[in-house]
Amino acid sequence: MVQQTEAVTTLDVRPMLAAGEEPFDAILDAARAVPAGGVLEIVAPFEPAPLYAVLGGMGFAHRTEPLEGGAFAVRFTQTGITAAATVAEVAERSPAAAGIFGSHLMDLCCGGSLTLERSAQAHGVELAGLLAELREAAAR
């Protein structure tokens, strides 16, 4: 069941799971269609924790809200922040990013042209944690 308002797409996977279907591909398709700044809301009968990593890798931040009856609604916001994004791109897109780079003593070396992956490596910063921090701040 897909509902779409201006910036939020809602996908309730409960009927698919109840029918014995695997909703993963439908979720990925919906996620790929979300524009920068857009939101994909997933409603599931359990906390869909595996999606945090998979959609996180595509640039999504997430916020989880338990619903009555044991279900969960998770809002995934497309921040565009991935390991392959450059430092300059991220700094431009997210005002909070500069402060986060500063807190890790990461400079805008080479005009910020390095990817987050290369820059984190060069500064000895743990990439997964940095990405999560940047995405969370960008989605706020």
Binding site: A53, V54, G57, A83, E126, L127, A128, G129, L131
Partner: peptide, 19 residues
């Protein structure tokens, strides 16, 4: 692996490293 988000000292899956 990457440091777990909810348990200090433990590790959890790093999806990016897997890919």
């Amino acid at each position: 692996t990457k440091p777990a988000s909810d348990t200090a000292g433990a590790q959890q899956l790093d999806w990016e490293k897997l890919l």
